[in-house]
């Protein structure tokens, strides 16, 4: 039911258009030179991975060079699948009381052809290993709760790779 006798209101003089009109009417010299912030809600345009129009083998070469510069390692690609790179990247953080924390992130980088001369480099998180080869403790909680996954390390490493590619190119 409509709230009886509510006196909640919006203060008219606080609305930007009215405030501006009042200030201009007061004749303040600087008022006319101050423009409102245009909060352009430029909707972020998202793409999968990064796009490229370069020759496929050149793209792969750029990625290998970038990975090498960043100190990452990769499995030798199989003959039948030259367009997939299985990366292992050490991401070491100072861990508390030397608990065994996995520090090798695995990423799969794959080149897709969208259309003629239009390619897409896709990055996919592929789990963790630890560099001391100690087997990871099996996940002790139910599958449903399993999804406490932090994407930030993956996002961080991919930004570094994208920067390296952007800078090199």
């Amino acid at each position: 039911a409509k709230e009886e006798n509510s006196t909640v209101a919006i203060l008219p003089t606080s609305l930007p258009q009215i405030h501006r009109a009042n200030l201009l009417a007061s004749g303040l010299p600087t008022a006319a030179s101050i423009s409102p912030l245009v909060n352009k809600k430029s909707k972020t345009k998202w793409h999968f991975g990064i796009r490229s129009r370069s020759y496929p083998l050149d793209v792969m070469g750029e990625i290998y060079i970038a990975l090498k510069n960043l100190g990452a390692e990769w499995a030798k690609p199989s003959e039948e699948d030259l367009w997939t790179i299985r990366v292992r990247w050490k991401y070491d953080v100072s861990q508390k009381n030397n608990e065994v924390v996995p520090d090798l992130m695995k990423i799969v980088i794959q080149l897709f052809q969208i259309e003629t001369n239009n390619y897409l480099v896709d990055f996919k998180f592929d789990g963790w290993e630890n560099s001391r080869g100690i087997p990871l403790p099996l996940s002790k909680i139910t599958d449903d709760e399993m999804c406490t996954f932090s994407a930030y390390p993956f996002l961080h490493l991919t930004t570094r790779l994208i920067m390296e590619l952007a800078v090199n190119s």
Binding site: I10, L11, S14, H19, A31
Partner: peptide, 23 residues
């Protein structure tokens, strides 16, 4: 002045809510 600084407010500002102590 704070009045001039408020000229920066973008037009989608909803306004200041007031009420009385009977609310």
């Amino acid at each position: 002045s704070v009045g001039e600084a408020l000229m920066r407010r973008s037009d989608d500002f909803e306004g200041v809510y007031t009420c009385t102590e009977h609310d």
